Every structure is written in structure tokens, then in C-alpha cells.
Simulated assay, not measured.
Amino acid sequence: MTTAVHHEIEGPADGPVVVLSNSIGSTLHMWDPQVKPLVDNGFRVVRYDTRGHGRSPVPDGPYGIDDLGGDVLALLDTLGVESAHFVGLSLGGMTGLWLAENAPQRIRGLVVCCTSAQPGNTQMWLDRVKQVRADGMGPIADGSIGRWFTQSWIDANPRQAKELRDMTANTPAEGYASCCQAIADLDLVPELPKITAPTLVIAGAQDKALPPDHGRVIADGVHGARFEVVDQAAHLGNYEQPARFSELIIEHLKEAA
């Protein structure tokens, strides 16, 4: 059953629609650095909070990747959008891959960032589910900031680092845990050759959560996909290196159009 997710829309009413999908443990505000550049280039930006995150409902879990993708299709239907560009990071990227594999007519151009088609580490994700349900989101938030950013960025941006740490701390524990379950056994690799949308894969050179090798698997599996590695970028590369990520995304979506 689909969930009506919280979303925000900015940009010209007649612009090509681009949907931005957040990572686990974040909200639509993780895309703040990309909104103005996209709007300035004529795109109509639709950001949403993945179910169980931010201001979206927290339905009973566990969730599957088909649930997360189904929410996006329902959102597009609600907005009367037949097809859209899709940009996702981490869990958002996994959602984008599922959409491009299972609803290809709805995805015009695809950008997946700092993500994986088969994350692995099943037991780690299941352990994280237990941890969140036992101890809440505080310990997860403390650990996530070190995965999301390089230490040099954290040292140079202490206020932003705290805000983003708090973003994770304020994520509903059940929503986070249920999304962990969606990731635990995920394997989208066999279906990658089905993707026909023009695809850009961006990896962060310093991403310890999902290193560039994960992106390479996606790029090798999707016909004609482009692969870019951005230096001095950990897992939330779009926030750490906003100019380069925005440049790559906009260039690709214009070509896809």
C-alpha cells in the first residue's frame, strides 16, 4: 500500500520535473544545495521525504524497495506527472534504480549518487535495526556524521555538521529501522540491463559507506551509463561538494532531455 509522502515543489510550472530522493536518516533538506541551481536552469524540482522520514507518515514496517518506489509513482500520479527525471542518493539512489527497472516509462533521466545496487552487509543492517529499536536514534546520528562527511569538512563546518547530525537524530526510529530492512537483502544487479533511461552514476572518492566500486557495478550494468568519481566527497557528496554535484546533475539532465 502506498504512502502519501510529504513533498515540496519549486521552480517554473512548465519546467521539466526532477524528483530528488533522500538518503536513509535524512530529509528532503539534504538537497538544499541543489535546488537553486536546478531551478535557475529551468527545472521544476520536487523534493520528498521518504516514508518513515522527515514529515512523511511512518507506516508499519518492514518496508521493501517496491514500497519506496511505489510511493514515488503515487506522488507522480498525484501531481499529474507522466514522466520525470529522478535524482537519488544512497537509499534514494536505490529507489531510483528500482523505478528505472520497473517503471521505465516514468523515468526520463536518472542520476544515482553514492549508492549501490547490492549494498551487502546484511547482518550490519539487521544489527542496526536492533540498535535503533533498543537505543533510539542518538547513537546512529553520532556515527552517521562521520560516514556522511570527511573529517576536514566536519572541522570546517561545525554548525552545518551539527544540523545534519540532528536531522538524523530526529528521524523516527521505526521509519529508519524499516528502511534498514529494505536495504538489508537488496539486490538490484540482475535487473540493471533493463534500465533504458540515460543514467549518470556519481560516487564519492572518500565514501566509506558505499565506496566507488559500488557505483562502478551500476555503471557497468546499465547500458551507456556514465560514471564519475568526485574527490573530497564522502557519503553525502552532494552536500560536501555541492558545486561539482550540481554541475554533473544539471549537465546530465539537460542531455537526457
Results as ranks from 00 to 15, higher is better:
2 T>L: 15
10 E>D: 13
16 P>T: 08
17 V>A: 08
19 V>Q: 00
22 N>I: 06
27 T>A: 09
29 H>L: 11
35 V>A: 05
36 K>F: 13
39 V>W: 02
42 G>P: 01
43 F>T: 01
57 P>H: 03
58 V>R: 04
58 V>F: 11
61 G>E: 11
62 P>H: 12
63 Y>S: 06
73 L>Y: 08
78 T>V: 01
79 L>V: 03
81 V>K: 00
88 G>D: 06
90 S>I: 01
91 L>K: 04
93 G>Y: 08
94 M>F: 05
98 W>Y: 09
99 L>R: 02
99 L>W: 07
100 A>R: 00
101 E>W: 01
102 N>D: 07
107 I>T: 05
108 R>I: 14
108 R>V: 13
113 C>Y: 10
116 S>C: 01
119 P>I: 00
120 G>I: 02
125 W>C: 12
125 W>T: 12
126 L>K: 15
133 R>H: 12
135 D>H: 15
142 D>M: 10
144 S>K: 03
148 W>I: 09
154 I>L: 10
156 A>S: 13
157 N>W: 11
161 A>S: 09
167 M>F: 13
168 T>M: 10
171 T>M: 14
174 E>M: 13
177 A>V: 11
179 C>P: 03
179 C>V: 01
182 A>C: 10
182 A>S: 14
187 D>Q: 13
188 L>N: 06
189 V>P: 11
199 T>A: 00
200 L>R: 05
203 A>P: 06
204 G>L: 04
208 K>W: 14
209 A>S: 13
212 P>V: 07
220 D>S: 01
226 R>Y: 10
228 E>S: 12
229 V>I: 13
232 Q>M: 10
236 L>W: 15
236 L>N: 11
237 G>N: 05
243 A>V: 13
245 F>P: 01
248 L>V: 05
252 H>S: 10
253 L>F: 11
